[in-house]
Computed example of a mutant assay.
Amino acid sequence: MKLFNLILVVSMITVSNHLFSQESSQIKAHDIIEKAIQATGGKKLLNSIKTLYSKSETVMDGRNVNWITKEMAPNKGSFEIEYQGRIVYKSWFDGKTGYELVNGERKLADQAEFKDKVNRKYIINELAYIDPALYTIELVETNTEKAYYKIKATYVAGKVTYLYYDLKTYLLNKEETVENSNKSAFSTILMSDYKKFGDLLYATKSTFVSEDGDQIATLVDLYYNKEIKDKDFK
Rank of each mutant, 00 (worst) to 15 (best):
T188F: 12
T177H: 03
R120K: 15
D110T: 04
E179A: 07
Y122L: 03
Q111R: 07
I123A: 11
D94F: 01
L127C: 04
F197W: 09
K117M: 15
S181E: 13
D221H: 05
E105H: 15
Y129P: 09
T136R: 11
E176D: 10
W92T: 08
I151M: 06
L163D: 07
T169V: 04
S192D: 11
E175K: 13
A157L: 07
A109P: 06
Y99S: 02
E175Y: 12
D94I: 01
T177R: 04
Y170C: 08
R120W: 09
K121Q: 06
S181G: 15
V118G: 06
A185Q: 10
S187N: 15
S210Y: 08
G104C: 09
E175A: 12
D110A: 06
T207F: 01
N119V: 07
L219S: 00
D221E: 15
K226E: 13
K115W: 04
Y164T: 01
A153W: 04
E145I: 08
F186G: 11
I228S: 10
E211A: 14
T142S: 12
Y162Q: 00
Q215L: 10
T218E: 06
T97Y: 09
D214F: 00
A185H: 04
V160S: 03
P132K: 10
V140D: 02
D193H: 11
K107E: 15
T142F: 04
N125A: 14
D166F: 02
K196W: 10
K150I: 00
T169D: 09
E138R: 14
L200E: 12
Y223N: 08
Y162I: 01
I124N: 14
D212I: 12
F197C: 00
T218I: 08
N225A: 06
T204L: 00
G213C: 01
D193L: 03
V178L: 03
L167K: 14
T169F: 06
E145Y: 11
L101I: 14
Y99H: 02
Y135N: 09
T169Q: 06
L201C: 06
K168W: 09
L167C: 09
I216M: 00
I124Y: 14
N103W: 13
G104T: 12
E175T: 13
A217H: 06
